[in-house]
């Protein structure tokens, strides 16, 4: 817990790392000043893009003592305002799951390679990012904790599958290799409460280390303070749950 007599400093900047296929991708990296050792968190941004909100989330994690890194998952598609880029990606049906997995893995490995790392890295994502970090927890072995916030399309019907999203993420449930915190709003339309229940039941049936929290008055994206869907008490509690979870799993 922060006290007013503590020194605090942070460096936050755009860097370039090599993602899937060795492609250079822009990445926002915020880290506490000091030698560490610090745990790390990779942030998978939401469909509205690599936006100011996600850079703020990244800095917030650094403020709480994490090496925090948010790769631009749309970096290959185009550059422009986050909204214009996201609109172009939306029109193309999103980015491929395989490509995102490679980028998230590269970001995790980058953090672990730093001398200030404690060797542990978690993943945080919301909306499409929540889906991506659940997939990452199942398909990759580089993460020590997963924070999945209202990830939809984790349970996909056959007619929703595409070349870019060819497998329903819940098919990988048995492969989840990290503890998972899930935060969901009961008023969300996707994932619906029924889908959240199914997701939780499948994880429990597979014997996974999970912690699900549901917020009755919250809908989709209740952390997003720049949107009407922000729900203050749920967001405050959700962030608290997240920092408690990460503190336990990444220390």
């Amino acid at each position: 817990m922060y006290t007013t007599d503590q020194y605090e400093g942070m460096i936050a900047e755009t860097i370039t790392i090599k993602g899937t296929n060795g492609d250079a991708i822009n990445t926002y990296f915020a880290r506490p000043m000091g030698p560490g050792p610090f745990p790390g968190v990779v942030l998978a941004h939401h469909l509205p893009g690599w936006d100011e909100l996600y850079r703020e989330f990244t800095r917030r994690l650094a403020h709480h003592g994490y090496l925090a890194i948010s790769p631009d998952l749309y970096c290959r598609e185009a550059h422009g305002t986050p909204e214009d880029v996201a609109a172009a990606v939306r029109a193309e049906g999103g980015v491929s799951d395989d490509q995102v997995m490679g980028d998230l893995e590269a970001a995790a490995k980058y953090l672990k390679s730093l001398p200030s790392s404690n060797g542990k890295v978690g993943a945080f994502g919301s909306c499409s990012g929540g889906r991506h970090v659940f997939l990452a927890g199942c398909r990759l072995e580089c993460f020590d904790a997963i924070v999945e916030c209202w990830g939809g399309n984790i349970i996909m019907s056959d007619d929703q599958l595409t070349d870019k999203q060819p497998v329903s993420p819940n098919s990988y449930t048995k492969d989840l290799s990290a503890p998972l915190l899930g935060l969901f709003g009961d008023l969300d339309q996707s994932p619906t409460p029924e889908q959240v229940n199914q997701h939780e039941e499948e994880l429990k049936a597979a014997g996974k280390d999970i912690e699900f929290h549901r917020y009755p008055e919250a809908g989709h994206g209740f952390f997003y303070f720049d949107r009407p869907i922000y729900h203050q008490s749920s967001a405050v509690d959700g962030w608290d749950k997240m920092f408690t979870f990460l503190g336990k799993k990444l220390s």
């Binding site: 939306r90 929540g130 889906r131 990830g151 939809g152 399309n153 929703q160 999203q165 969300d188 994932p191």
Partner: peptide, 9 residues
């Protein structure tokens, strides 16, 4: 969650 529903012309 993102629906990915997009029609183009």
């Amino acid at each position: 969650m993102c629906t990915m529903i997009c029609e183009r012309a």
